[in-house]
Amino acid sequence: MTSAETGYNFAYLDEDSKRLIRRALLKAVAVPGYQVPFAGREMPMPYGWGTGGIQVTAALIGPDDVLKVIDQGSDDTTNAVSIRAFFSKTAGVATTTVTGEASIIQTRHRIPERPLKPGQIMVYQVPIPEPLRWLEPGETETRVLHALGEYGLMYVKLYEDISRHGRIATSYDYPVEVFGRYIMSPSPIPRFDNPKLDRSPALHLFGAGREKRIYAVPPYSPVRSLDFEDYPFAVQRWPEVCAICGASDSYLDEVVLDDGGRRLFVCSDSDYCAGRAGKGSPPQ
């Protein structure tokens, strides 16, 4: 086994742990949107830094994979850089920042702007997998609600949003219904990204390390963002375009420039932006 760092198993995680995660992943794919409990392991980083996603990636990854890691759309932030380095070190795999070249994309809270392809796998880092958790704190209760498909609470929450704000104000982690059965948290992606999940050709796997849950959306699965007939689901739009590449179709981050309140908007997806601006990502 050739890994860059000796003394660790391939991709860090031991084979017993990988196997139980793999069995959980197969169940998760068979029951789209259902949260499979798994015996999550301690990883060499704190909860909140992607321990769930890393365990899923470690159970998936092989020598032929090409890994991309993004954090809020960017390949260059601390979390993304260190997870990429973690897997090059422990598994010796190739990494990339180019969406189209990756076989596995681990992500914290964005789906890339470039359409995903069949065969690609998205791995999400999930802080709170239970979409009903803020409405019903008890795990035994939420289990029953999921078992019964009793999701009235969630609609009441969205309705309260409308009565308070005049619209559904939930802007990220916007709940979805998967394959007409389970209500699922898409992880804190902006609701701008929700439509990309619907009938996506890629496989989407979600790992929550602290809460020890794994769930999945198989390719081409119907994923519906919850809404009401008179308040249909809609994504955010900006009057501005990206200040670097001029994109009008991507998710924009607001950057404050000075104390005078000047600001500009740039693409959150750094690969998409660099590609459009003609500065393709450097080969790795």
């Binding site: 990988k18 992943l25 197969l26 794919v29 998936l60 990854i61 092989g62 198989p218 390719p219």
Partner: peptide
């Protein structure tokens, strides 16, 4: 290495 390869195939088959 073998179990990883076989698992990915199984995952591909279920998905």
């Amino acid at each position: 290495l073998s179990s990883q390869r076989v698992f990915r195939l199984a995952l591909g088959c279920l998905s």
